[in-house]
């Protein structure tokens, strides 16, 4: 049941397009939100414009990394040589699933990351003297927000490289089952990281603005943020577990 190269290309190109397309959409929102708040803060505090612009650039680079991951998966789908040697339906669906996983998976984290960056910039606009602390906290917050994206990246890479190109004992029933399992593995981590991503972004944003208001309590605020974020992340980890089970156990 080896697919023809042209049919496989349909899956590859769709996966590549969906991955970068959806990821860029959310990254654009996140970065734009951060930039808009930079503009507002500069309007209030023209003296601090240089530090605000620097923070904006740093935060946008971090938000962008989700889109970069998606772009990498797209490039691998397009140029990774998956058309050579042939593949069956299950592998074709796993390639589409890889694109969907990283594309959908970085949506929530990108929104959250952008929100966190915007709140940090607002905080720096209010209290420019504490910009170092706020930037450090912003980077930690964005990093833990992005862990959802990284789970999605891991699942995408697993779907690309650990799924065999052709099944050992092919049968129609098994093929349908496997195809469903692989594409679902992509979808589950994609949708599953949306909630935790936005949630942790909200936590990080509130922590940033709190540090700008009460900068002497930075330690306890960062610790509360970390604790809250670790608990919020648990649902993303459940999604990761289900995704692994679908890839390896099914």
């Amino acid at each position: 049941m080896v697919l023809e190269a042209d049919i496989l290309k349909v899956f590859l190109y769709t996966g590549a397009a969906l991955s970068t397309g959806i990821a860029s959409l959310s990254a654009g929102f996140g970065e734009g939100y951060a930039a808009a708040h930079t503009a507002r803060s500069i309007m209030r505090q023209p003296n601090a414009s240089s530090v605000l612009t620097r923070t904006m650039l740093i935060s946008q680079a971090v938000v962008e990394s989700g889109a970069i991951f998606a772009l990498v998966i797209s490039m691998l789908l397009l140029f990774g040589g998956f058309t050579q040697g042939g593949a069956d339906w299950a592998k074709a669906f796993s390639l589409l699933g890889a694109g969907l996983a990283i594309g959908l998976g970085c949506t929530g984290p990108n929104f959250g990351s952008g929100y966190s960056a915007a709140r940090a910039i607002e905080g720096i606009g209010r209290n420019p003297s504490k910009s170092g602390r706020i930037t450090a906290n912003m980077l930690i917050g964005q990093a833990i927000t992005e862990s959802g994206t990284i789970f999605a990246l891991v699942v995408s890479l697993l779907l690309l490289y650990t799924v065999p190109a052709q099944m050992s004992e092919p049968s129609l029933a098994k093929m349908i089952m496997k195809a469903c399992a692989y594409i679902t593995a992509g979808i589950v981590i994609g949708i599953g990281t949306f909630g935790p991503g936005t949630g942790i972004g909200y936590v990080a944003g509130k922590a940033n603005i709190s540090i700008s208001k009460h900068s002497k309590d930075q330690g306890v605020i960062t610790r509360t943020m970390f604790l809250g974020a670790a608990v919020s992340e648990s649902t993303a980890i459940y999604a990761l577990v289900i995704s692994f089970l679908l890839i390896f156990v099914s």
Binding site: S65, I68, I144, I150, I237
Partner: peptide, 16 residues
């Protein structure tokens, strides 16, 4: 997952 997230973040960014 802490190990995974901390290391794949670095790897993904540089590799990407």
């Amino acid at each position: 997952s802490k190990v995974i997230s901390i290391s794949f973040r670095l790897f993904g960014n540089i590799f990407g």
